[in-house]
């Protein structure tokens, strides 16, 4: 029973989702939206589990003084500091704790930590992409074979398409490369993806695929 009940639930939920796709009636939409609300509620509880997992793993590293345990100290400090600043505010000279309302989010420390530490760090991580694209392109475009040489040529044309030095012909060729061979390959992948999604969904609904529940 303990193993069968989840599959019965999956079958019923999956079958309802297929059903509601073909039934636009308000009653069907109501049940669909009701189930989506459940997802939001589950997400809220899962976040608590997630934070608990992060605290437990980090605390364990600090307690056992595992290699690089200092990073865990920084993680936990950041977590608790932002939590603290996010629910408190002492502007206008009075200190207050705000659990129900959003006053804490205007706490100047919370805003400064967010604007001047988190945002620049995230921007730094994102900017790494530019350098990684260059290094990846260098590896990809090495002309070791005829196919690789063709790839290099196509890439050069597409990269140069907005350069006015080469005139209008390069834009025409680049647009053809993007809109014909490239789009054809993408659509082939999309058709395969669509079928793969339906097949995976069917396997799950019919109980053929059980690996996602850890039952291979």
């Amino acid at each position: 029973m303990r193993r069968q009940l989840p599959f019965v639930l999956v079958f019923l939920s999956g079958f309802f989702m297929i059903f509601q796709y073909f039934v636009p009636h308000q009653k069907s939409e109501f049940v669909y939206e009701f189930l989506l609300d459940w997802l939001t509620i589950i997400g809220g509880f899962a976040m608590a589990l997630g934070i608990w997992s992060l605290i437990r793993v980090s605390y364990d590293r600090i307690k056992r003084q595992r290699e690089n345990w200092g990073y865990s100290v920084i993680t936990l400090t950041g977590l608790f500091l932002m939590m603290f600043f996010g629910i408190t505010n002492w502007e206008d000279g009075s200190f207050g704790v705000y659990i129900y309302t959003a006053e804490g989010l205007s706490n100047s420390m919370f805003v400064h930590f967010f604007d001047f530490i988190l945002i620049p760090i995230q921007a730094t991580m994102f900017s790494l992409l530019a350098f990684f694209i260059a290094s990846a392109a260098y590896r990809a475009f090495r002309a070791r074979s005829v196919i690789a040489s063709l790839l290099l040529l196509a890439a050069l044309i597409v990269m140069m398409r907005f350069n006015p030095i080469f005139g209008a012909w390069i834009e025409t060729v680049a647009n053809w490369l993007m809109n014909v061979p490239n789009l054809a390959a993408q659509r082939a992948i999309v058709i395969g993806l669509g079928l793969g999604m339906v097949a995976t969904a069917l396997k799950i609904i019919l109980g053929i695929e059980r690996g996602y529940m850890g039952q291979g």
């Binding site: 997630g50 997992s53 850890g214």
Partner: peptide, 21 residues
């Protein structure tokens, strides 16, 4: 390492069951 707490919960069950299997 996971990005989504629900994914984490499911992945924990999946890995646990695999070790059991």
């Amino acid at each position: 390492p996971t990005y989504d707490p629900i994914v984490m919960t499911v992945a924990q069950e999946v890995v646990k069951s695999s070790y059991l299997d």
